[in-house]
Design a protein around this nucleic acid. Structure first.
Length: 651
RNA sequence: CGGGGCGUAGCUUAGCCUGGUAGAGCGCUACGUUCGGGACGUAGAGGUCGUGGGUUCGAAUCCCACCGCCCCGACCA
């Protein structure tokens, strides 16, 4: 009998990110708990889906409110020693997460509620944008990755998932890996299942755990080895369709972050190891962010530093005429740009050519920059090498004929020009016109080196790192820089993966065509931390309404007084009817402890019921993000709470 | 993976330099007094001082190796 009703509940309950968490295995007494923990998914979405009463109607109110004494929120007075930034400290202090090991965290009950809120909002926005949810394995056959286009680069951050059995000797190459992302799984799937243009476009997504063996996990959930991510993959018949899918996702992301209550800005980004043609990152501005955003408010330009360009080199710049014959001069012991700037040479850094040597897919190539510029290594991605790294001196000498410090790219001075995969010069070297560079002879440099006449340039490109203050391409105004946390990323991939895995379809003319793909990610767990980083004060977290683990905290100062608990339950029920998730602090703690904890865990709306207030016939209503406390007569309390909840949820 | 720092009770840590009884605060347990912004008293429980080796009569302390964690750099959502 009990089992029957539980099954019913399970089917009524909103789907969860863990589809296997079936209720039918739970004993009857736990069924209420199940409903309680899962109910928020539709409650929080009240304004998007069915009104709450439809849900609450199934169960007697107040069935859902959580009693703090029976929940589990281990708060800490002190910050853990290993936490550096505010959001990391608060995650731990507010009892949202606990560390297992570097970059590996348990989501505690309160933290999991936030994760569920975020995943549900994400799910709703993506569904609204036409994306379709599925669930893929996280253990991947390594073979699949070996077939893909980025095995060499991606394996560095991948966990291998071979047998841990003692009898079986570890193979040199992994048999299985843990999925860091799922292009290699979804593309073969779509290849097998979709063969007609009639089935396109499609956009599949999942919200699941990702595994990346980050070289350096950091700041709690900010860069973890195991994290929760929404990843989506769009498949279109052609480029126009792919661009439409891309923009639909961009719009969905914008709605998602708006709903979460975090400011996230779309910025142009480098495509990195993903490959593909263009991409945007969604950045939450924060000092502790890992990325620099180069932007100009006037023109609206915003780009990741890896991608950013400036108008430093005018489009109509004329090439300088040679200033004289190339002349070699001795520079004993001078092996740095800075040393050549000193007397007696006195060559300013922006008159020097800097020559860097890299190995790209096994072959050396040169990059020429102004002495005053820094290489933006990510920009080398545009050269098309699968893997590149700086060359070692041992690799440089046989090719160029000199050690680092005396290198150059002047025609005729390179010892083995045929060995080079190319000489790539940054546009800005054209600003030098005639300058100084290494002679490929230890202890000698060349002057009067003319860019067009003397340098053996294969191709000009954008390789330098933009500096704040340089003119914006669009407006000419100075560019500014600011740090940000990357919470989402969208890529238009093109046909790179479709080609590798043969994902083709038949078009209306019976012709086989490659699908055009896009891929999309939102760091759900990172977003949780980014929200805290953006929304906290000296006392704790200040949750935005929609992301809060509970929206309303009923703080009962005298839980031993039956009348106080009765009022609390009435108000909790009123708040729930209005669509809020409610936590009732019924602990036998002193008021100070309760207030401190309330501020720490940051529930948006606090209702305080105390013996003092009850004597006056009032309760108190306070917003976490405001200072003042409203005294509300008991008779009006339920109605006022309903109004406040409506206000909090943005009506 | 390079550079720097740190591992002492569940948490925050003192002690290490100069070797000789492992201490405090928070938290926890019990009792009492308190009770609107992290109370107080009394009594308790709780420690392989990261691991292994070495030096020494004797090591948390000195030496070596390893492991783990944190920060800075290169990569990512």
């Amino acid at each position: 009998m009990a089992t029957e009703s539980i099954r019913l509940n399970a089917s009524e309950a909103p789907s969860d990110i863990f589809p296997l968490r079936s209720c039918s295995l739970l004993p009857a007494p736990f069924s209420a708990a199940y409903r309680t923990t899962n109910r928020f998914t539709s409650v929080n979405a009240a304004r998007h889906v069915a009104p709450c009463s439809a849900v609450t109607g199934l169960f007697a109110c107040p069935a859902f409110m959580k009693l703090w004494s029976q929940f589990f929120i281990p708060t800490l007075k002190e910050s853990p020693a290993d936490a550096e930034i505010a959001s990391h400290k608060l995650l731990v202090r507010a009892g949202l997460v606990r560390k297992l090991s570097g970059g590996l965290y348990t989501y505690m009950p309160l933290g999991l509620r936030v994760i569920h809120k975020l995943t549900q909002m994400c799910r709703e926005e993506l569904d609204a944008a036409g994306a379709i949810e599925l669930w893929m394995p996280h253990v991947h056959p390594a073979e699949l990755w070996q077939q893909g286009p980025r095995w060499a680069a991606a394996r560095e951050i991948m966990f291998r998932a071979d047998s841990a059995g003692e009898g079986k000797r570890a193979s040199r190459e992994p048999e299985f890996v843990l999925g860091p992302t799922h292009e290699e799984v979804i593309t073969p799937l779509v290849k097998a299942e979709i063969t007609s243009y009639r089935d396109l476009p499609k956009n599949f997504y999942q919200i699941a755990t990702k595994f990346r063996n980050e070289i350096r996990p950091r700041y709690g959930l900010m860069r973890a080895r195991e994290f929760i991510m929404m990843d989506a993959y769009s498949f279109d018949a052609n480029d126009d369709g792919a661009i439409r899918s891309y923009h639909a996702m961009k719009t969905a992301y914008e709605s998602f972050f708006r709903r979460v209550g975090v400011q996230a800005i779309a910025v142009e980004a480098d495509t990195g190891v993903m490959g593909g043609s263009y991409s945007h990152e969604f950045m939450v501005p924060a000092e502790v962010g890992d990325d620099d955003v180069i932007y100009n408010e006037a023109s609206g330009y915003a780009a990741n530093r890896e991608k950013a360009t400036s108008g430093l080199v005018p489009a109509d710049l004329a090439d300088a005429a040679p200033a004289g014959a190339v002349e070699e001069f001795a520079t004993p012991g001078v092996v740095t740009i800075a040393a050549l700037e000193q007397a007696p040479y006195s060559v300013p850094a922006d008159r020097q050519f800097k020559t860097l040597v890299f190995i790209g897919d096994g072959k050396p190539f040169l990059v020429i920059l102004r002495g005053s510029d820094e290489l933006e290594e990510a920009k080398l991605g545009s050269l098309g090498f699968g893997l590149h790294r700086p060359a070692t001196p041992d690799e440089i000498v046989p090719v160029l004929g000199a050690k680092p410090g005396s290198l150059g790219a002047v025609k005729g001075t390179i010892k083995e020009p045929a060995a080079l995969a190319g000489v790539f010069a940054d546009h800005a070297v054209r600003l030098i016109g005639n300058g100084t560079t290494g002679a490929n002879k230890d202890g000698f440099h060349l002057r009067n080196v003319n860019v067009t006449r003397d340098l053996a340039v294969t191709k000009f490109g954008d390789f330098r790192r933009v500096r704040p203050g340089e003119p914006d391409v669009k407006s000419g105004q100075p560019l500014q820089v600011r740090r940000g946390i990357e919470v989402g990323h969208i890529f238009k991939l093109g046909t790179k993966y479709a080609e590798k895995f043969g994902a083709a379809y038949t078009d209306g003319q019976k012709q086989s065509q490659l699908m055009v793909m896009g891929c999309y990610g939102i760091g759900i767990s990172r977003t949780m931390q980014a929200v805290i980083e953006q929304s906290h004060d000296a006392d704790g977290i200040v949750w935005p309404w929609n992301s809060a683990p509970f929206q309303v905290l009923v703080c009962v100062l005298d839980p031993q007084v039956p009348e106080a608990m009765e009022v609390a339950k009435k108000l909790a029920a009123a708040a729930e009817r209005a669509g809020a998730d409610v936590l009732v602090d019924d602990r036998a703690e002193r008021p100070g402890v309760k207030f401190k904890d309330a501020d720490l865990i940051g529930i948006p709306l606090r209702l305080t019921i105390g013996g003092k207030g009850l004597k006056e016939g009032i309760i108190e209503l306070k917003w976490r993000n405001q200072k003042d406390v409203a005294k509300v007569p008991l008779a009006e309390a339920e109605a006022r709470v309903a109004v406040a909840v409506a206000e909090g949820s943005g009506r």
